[in-house]
Design a protein around this nucleic acid. Structure first.
Length: 293
DNA sequence: CTCGCCACCTGGGGGC
DNA sequence: TGCCCCCAGGTGGCGA
């Protein structure tokens, strides 16, 4: 008895596969699409056992037996973290940069690169994370006050995030806007790809000191962030819906990147060759014509 | 507090 | 063919 394909979440592939098929790393939209894909099947399940493979970023923080017998009561998201509400606590899951969750038919041991699993009365949830930058942590409290979450900035898709709040958060920051947006404390959930895309959409040079942005440009940036994330989630959602009708692989319905990974390609808007620079040991892609200091 | 840089990990790709 | 090195990414932690 298998799970319908609609329960499968989008997978996250290697760079080569990502470039080839335009598959993206788990940033906020990918995590949200994963959450929505798992929600109905996960909530209400009773856990039989938890399985642990190779170590992830941190230890699980509880004995494997601790989770047995408990029910999953909810599934939320904060930034890039998935929060499984479980009786007596919360399981905090981060997909790192190569993590993906899927259902497996039981009984089955952890597969290749699967380093965590929850066996339930309706199948086995499996975390596959080849690079093991991800994390699974048992937090024995119903309150979401874990240190990992404490420093996160506002959720960009909730009303608390807008041009005004962004402008205040950037005040006095002299680091490049690219670096500040990657820092989860100003706004939660953006990674390298969506930061590059949002700055392009807002017409802002990634090297600009964050505190130099005017209120007006912060408004435009906040709007660009929201639009990009909304579109990406919508595309992911359509991918999930598509799974209900086909055997299709994931990642073929993603938003096309307009700058990310497109060094030397012509800008969609002005035709200039896009640039790749390195900021904080990370690649930044941008258009020197469309993005102004 | 802020900033910049490093380690962590792995598969794929390029160079030789 | 095979081997070695480099690279991508998110995040906590470090020293300045």
């Amino acid at each position: 008895m298998g799970y319908p394909k609609s329960f499968r979440t989008q997978t996250v592939a290697t760079r080569a596969h990502r470039l080839k098929h335009n598959v993206k790393m788990p940033e906020l939209p990918e995590v949200e699409v994963t959450r929505r894909g798992l929600l109905d099947a996960a909530v209400g399940r009773r856990i039989h056992a938890s399985l642990v493979g190779k170590p992830l970023r941190w230890p699980l923080g509880c004995a494997d037996a601790t989770l047995a017998g408990r029910h999953i009561t909810g599934l939320a998201r904060r930034g890039k973290y998935l929060l499984f509400a479980i009786e007596g606590g919360c399981l905090i899951v981060h997909l790192g940069m190569s993590g993906s969750l899927r259902w497996a038919d039981l009984p089955v041991p952890l597969g290749p690169h699967e380093h965590f699993g929850l066996d339930t009365d309706r199948g086995g949830l499996r975390l596959r994370d080849p690079r093991r930058f991800g994390a699974v942590i048992w937090h024995p409290s119903n309150l979401p006050e874990h240190p990992l979450l404490a420093g996160l900035g506002p959720e960009p898709l909730l009303p608390g995030f807008d041009g005004g709040s962004l402008h205040r958060a950037l005040a006095g920051r002299r680091a490049p806007i690219k670096a500040v947006l990657l820092d989860q404390s100003v706004v939660a959930g953006l990674g390298n790809i969506y930061v590059c895309e949002a700055l392009f959409a807002a017409g802002i040079d990634p090297r600009l000191p964050a505190g130099n942005l005017s209120a007006k440009r912060c408004r435009r940036l906040a709007e660009a962030i929201r639009t990009i994330l909304d579109q990406a989630i919508a595309m992911g959602g359509s991918t999930l819906r598509d799974f209900a009708h086909t055997d299709g692989g994931s990642g073929h319905f993603q938003l096309a990147a307009r700058v990310y990974g497109r060094a030397n390609a012509p800008c969609d808007v002005c035709g200039r060759a896009l640039q790749r620079i390195v900021q904080g040991q990370r690649s930044t892609y941008f258009c020197a014509g469309c993005q102004r200091a």
